[in-house]
Design a protein around this nucleic acid. Structure first.
Length: 736
DNA sequence: TTAATGACTTAGGATTATGTTG
DNA sequence: CAACATAATCCTAAGTCATTAA
């Protein structure tokens, strides 16, 4: 009940905080300086403190990413071993454990293709020590641990494969079906509603909160929230002022009147026992026995079985996020003004259920009711609620491998391909517009130039004070760019430095054409650092223009298009049919990385990065020493052979052996050095996002077919499920 | 015409599962 | 087999963009 009033409060706040309105833009170029939208320049200080995690040095313009990536070795998944196992392992690799929990009549042996696949393989390989991955050759029964009979092994294998076949058969090949009429997303939809997180369990009596040094028993509600804070104590952000203030304010709201009177200063709160309690709990969970862990897993599976799926048009589809978000403290990204606020527990009374008219609506938890049950088949969500921190709506939707998501994804790439066919004329258009008399048009042209060339995001306006201060193209401010008439031998260089989505820093120095450069200079004239660069432009205007150029065209399509086309080009450039699989994969990952760099997909360097890098380097050093040793030995042997004068077959073979050792050593050294370089380069680059969201999977599938690379090397199981449509329909001659 | 809302995609970090190594 | 490294999965925040309401 408090929830509703909260939401209202938020809405009001928003109104108040709304930025000055943009002024209309009827003026001509060059005369608009007075109409600039003002923005408090406090925002600018924000940006640079807290030194953004990552800096990317220089980004190549689209389509010229050639030297982005030096070397790539380590491949995405567990390629190496898979590869080894790939073809033949089937036959008689012992699969001991397997047989244990699967027991069913078998099916005929796997085709070798199948056998290697996915989990079957993974499981097997982990279970047994695995004799260094057999090379492709038919492995004989080999060692074989005595435990299980051959039949059992066979049986397990068949079982596996049967399961797989079944899975294959039950897969809904929606991409072969006709689409629904506009707007209709489904005809029948049935599900069991969301899964609620467990109730709060009160602390045991021996775990206490202390205020000002005195033990204090908290009410249930206050205790729960206190525990949220205590759990995070190891995190740096619990030391941040904003976080602490937000937390404390919201915590006090949960307290009883009595508690509120006493607890007035967060500094005087001692959560240490709660913190320790939580840590112990985590430890205990880790220390569970095998059986207990298995029991947990089984219980979990049951929940998934019941709540994790829905029935959509008579097909069982996986739900993406069927578990409701548990309560906790909000942690936004970057310098979020709302960090630390209490994210409340969601009640059934907050939830709107969406399902088919004819279907039986899910039952609310006993003693509760849903906020509403509706039957809207023009949307794809199964349940929704309004979240209390930002006041936005959250949804329960289907998994990425579902028809609903897949179809949309496919469509997205089709739009991007359509852009390919008209991108030239669109480029001509905005280049022409750079000289327009209209200020808006010029701004639009420059913005488009950025979006196209640099793959910037559109940059919607955001309410100040409600979220972290981040920008995209249209919302760039003067403070985010620096102009250099000349820099590092290039003319007309624009230096970008701003925080984008998720407060990831975008840093780039780009040479641009003169007309663009001059325009930017013009836009910046007599503006303050905190003023918008494109003061006449917004995303609505931009997209309206784009959709008039091509139906379905919006700013983000350029990102998709440029990402995919870059992958295709890079793959073509980098791979040779004659390469071996490892080399091909290397090239693929390089191409992928070129895209990730283009899209600025960064990650925090892995926690263990420095360590593992150091390990690798010390290995390299060791190997170098070994190499030096091998070399001197070789030299010695050679000398001896020479002094002998007459040919000596024995000595000769020694020399040969030494030479081979040197060679081997060199190879290994090279490989490690390559790996080191590669890892170093990938330190801050995340390949996953582009692979999942920007690269038309059909490009990859076609490449695999052309290059004789198994698709499993490129996509893991989840990814193969998501891209099943592409894997199924794509021929080798596909062109994006 | 603009602001707010709604629905959906995109995103990186945290957590968990798996695999490797000493 | 413990300790560690890496990959997969989970989680949910933060964008985009069209529609709706004021």
């Amino acid at each position: 009940m408090g929830r509703e009033s909260d939401a209202k409060g938020d809405a009001k706040l928003k109104q108040k905080g709304t930025k000055l309105k943009r002024l209309s833009d009827r003026e001509n170029a060059g005369s608009g300086g007075d109409l600039i939208k003002k923005r408090s320049s406090k925002s600018k200080e924000k940006k640079n403190d807290g030194s953004p995690k990552q800096v990317r040095e220089v980004l190549e313009p689209v389509g010229s990413c050639s030297d982005l990536v030096k070397l790539e070795l380590q491949g995405d998944f567990t390629e190496k071993k898979k590869k080894g196992l790939k073809r033949k392992r089937v036959k008689d690799e012992p699969i001991e454990e397997e047989a244990a929990f699967v027991s069913e009549r078998g099916i005929k042996p796997l085709s070798d293709e199948e056998a290697s696949e996915g989990e079957a393989q993974k499981k097997e390989s982990k279970k047994k020590p695995k004799k260094t991955v057999k090379k492709e050759e038919e492995e004989q029964p080999v060692t074989k641990k005595p435990k299980r009979s051959k039949e059992e092994i066979e049986e397990a294998k068949m079982l596996k494969m049967k399961k797989k076949e079944e899975e294959e058969q039950s897969r809904w090949r929606w991409w072969e079906e006709e689409r629904y009429e506009d707007g209709v997303k489904w005809k029948c939809l049935e599900h069991n509603g969301p899964y609620f997180p467990p109730e709060y369990q009160p602390l045991p009596d021996n775990v206490n909160f202390f205020y000002n040094g005195k033990k204090m028993k908290l009410s249930l509600a206050a205790e729960e929230v206190a525990l949220f804070f205590a759990q995070m104590l190891d995190h740096e952000y619990t030391t941040k002022k904003v976080f602490r203030e937000n937390f404390f304010r919201d915590w006090r709201k949960e307290m009883t009147h009595q508690e509120r009177l006493v607890i007035s200063d967060l500094e005087k709160c001692d959560f240490r026992e709660l913190h320790a309690f939580h840590k112990d709990k985590v430890e205990a969970r880790k220390a569970l026995s095998k059986e207990e862990k298995q029991a947990q897993k089984d219980a979990n599976q049951k929940i998934v079985d019941k709540y994790g799926f829905c029935l959509l048009d008579n097909h069982r589809e996986r739900i993406g996020n069927f578990k409701l978000e548990p309560p906790g403290l909000f942690r936004g990204r970057g310098e979020h003004p709302k960090q630390g606020m209490l994210k409340k527990r969601i009640q059934p009374e907050d939830i709107i259920i969406n399902c088919g008219k004819e279907s039986k609506p899910p039952a609310p938890p006993a003693g509760h009711h849903w906020k509403e049950v509706r039957h809207d088949n023009t949307v794809t969500w199964l349940a929704s609620w309004t979240e209390n921190v930002q006041g936005s709506i959250k949804y329960i939707m289907l998994n990425a491998n579902s028809k609903l998501k897949g179809e949309k994804d496919w469509e997205k790439y089709e739009v991007a391909r359509k852009l390919k066919s008209c991108v030239d004329s669109i480029r001509d258009g905005y280049l022409r517009d750079l000289k327009s008399k209209q200020m808006v048009t010029r701004q639009r042209a420059v913005a488009l130039y950025f979006i196209d060339k640099l793959a910037l995001r559109a940059g919607n306006e955001k309410e100040e004070g409600e979220t972290a201060d981040t920008v995209g193209c249209c919302s760039l401010r003067v403070e985010h760019i620096t102009l250099h008439d000349e820099l590092d031998g290039n003319d007309c260089v624009v230096e970008f430095d701003f925080l984008g989505k998720d407060s990831i820093r975008y840093y780039n120095k780009v040479p641009v054409i003169k007309k663009v450069f001059k325009n930017i200079k013009l836009f910046m004239e007599s503006k303050d650092p905190g003023d918008e660069l494109f003061d006449r432009l917004n995303t609505a205007l931009l997209n309206k223009h784009l959709s008039s150029l091509m139906p379905g065209l919006t700013a983000k399509v350029f990102r998709t298009y440029n990402a995919s086309i870059t992958l295709q080009q890079q793959l073509q450039q980098l791979t040779n049919k004659s390469d071996n699989v490892a080399e091909k994969l290397l090239s693929y990952n390089r191409a992928n990385r070129a895209v990730a760099i283009l899209c600025n997909h960064q990650r925090a360097p892995p926690k263990t990065f420095e360590q593992s890098m150091a390990n690798l380097h010390s290995k390299i050093v060791a190997r170098k020493e070994q190499l030096a040793l091998a070399k001197t030995e070789l030299k010695l042997a050679k000398k001896e052979l020479k002094t002998r004068g007459s040919p000596d077959s024995k000595l000769q073979s020694v020399v040969d052996r030494k030479a081979a050792a040197v060679k081997r050593c060199e190879d290994q050294l090279l490989k490690m050095e390559v790996q080191a370089t590669d890892r170093e380069e990938n330190k801050q680059i995340a390949l996953g996002t582009s692979k999942l969201n920007y690269l038309d999977p059909r490009i990859s599938v076609a490449w695999c077919k052309n290059m004789d690379v198994p698709i499993e090397k490129i996509y893991n199981k989840t990814q193969r499920e998501k891209f099943a449509w592409a894997i199924d329909m794509t021929e080798a001659d596909f062109e994006f």
